[in-house]
């Protein structure tokens, strides 16, 4: 994909946005020297970008994340170096934003600077198999809540519809109309449909615009 300087990934929690953010960070690193992934999820206490800390470091990707992530300190703290994302114009960043309107509130701290620079895209990750975003209207409702909380508008949609380890090719195919309806009702393009490698092999070229995630989904 064509990366802006800042790529913001958000969506309802459990949509799979952290896996997509990490995978995109690896892609970005292939074309840019200075790359960071910033985890500003203040809601989720367990599954964090920090789970991939070692691999990111090996790839030369800077991890910006609360020093309390994955610890017993249950504090919704933001990383102190998150301002590097907006201040350091040499840096290309992927932002992993928290799971709903409360999580997205944290992004509001730097959204004025992001708007002012205006070199960003904000991608809404959707999963048809999640109960609170199971149809286009409910997915759009969550989307508008996130936009209102963080003060930025989404620019495109990522269809990451999946049933975890049980995902079959047919499940992904059945989600295409859902993504198209969200796209039509919001006037935003579907950037791609994302799957892991085993599902991609099953799909065997059946879907255009397929994105194969580089990391295996946890649990």
């Amino acid at each position: 994909m064509n990366f802006s300087r800042i790529t913001i990934i958000s969506g309802h929690y459990g949509s799979g946005k952290t896996n997509i953010a990490v995978s995109l960070a690896y892609d970005l690193k292939r074309i840019r020297e200075k790359v960071a992934i910033a985890d500003i999820d203040i809601v989720n206490p367990y599954f964090r970008t920090k789970d991939n800390e070692q691999q990111l470091e090996n790839a030369g990707i800077r991890l910006i994340c609360s020093e309390y992530a994955n610890s017993n300190v249950d504090i919704p703290a933001l990383p102190q170096d998150m301002y590097a994302v907006t201040d350091d114009k040499e840096l290309h960043s992927i932002l992993d934003v928290g799971g709903d309107e409360r999580g997205a509130l944290a992004l509001g701290r730097i959204s004025p600077a992001i708007r002012e620079e205006n070199d960003y895209q904000m991608l809404y990750v959707v999963n048809k198999f999640r109960p609170l975003t199971k149809d286009a209207d409910s997915a759009i409702e969550v989307m508008r809540e996130i936009e209102a909380a963080c003060g930025l508008k989404f620019t495109a949609i990522i269809n990451n519809s999946n049933l975890g380890a049980e995902t079959m090719a047919d499940d992904v195919i059945s989600s295409l109309n859902y993504a198209a309806e969200i796209s039509q009702k919001t006037n935003l393009p579907v950037l791609f449909t994302s799957v892991n490698r085993s599902v991609a092999e099953q799909l065997n070229g059946e879907i255009d615009n397929l994105y194969v995630m580089e990391i295996e989904t946890k649990l």
Binding site: G14, N127, F129, R130, P131, L163, G164, E166, M168, D171
Partner: peptide, 16 residues
């Protein structure tokens, strides 16, 4: 598989 949804354990308790 179309009748299944992907849920966190906590959400499954609430919906059930």
């Amino acid at each position: 598989m179309a009748d299944k949804v992907l849920m966190k354990g906590n959400e499954a308790i609430a919906e059930a």
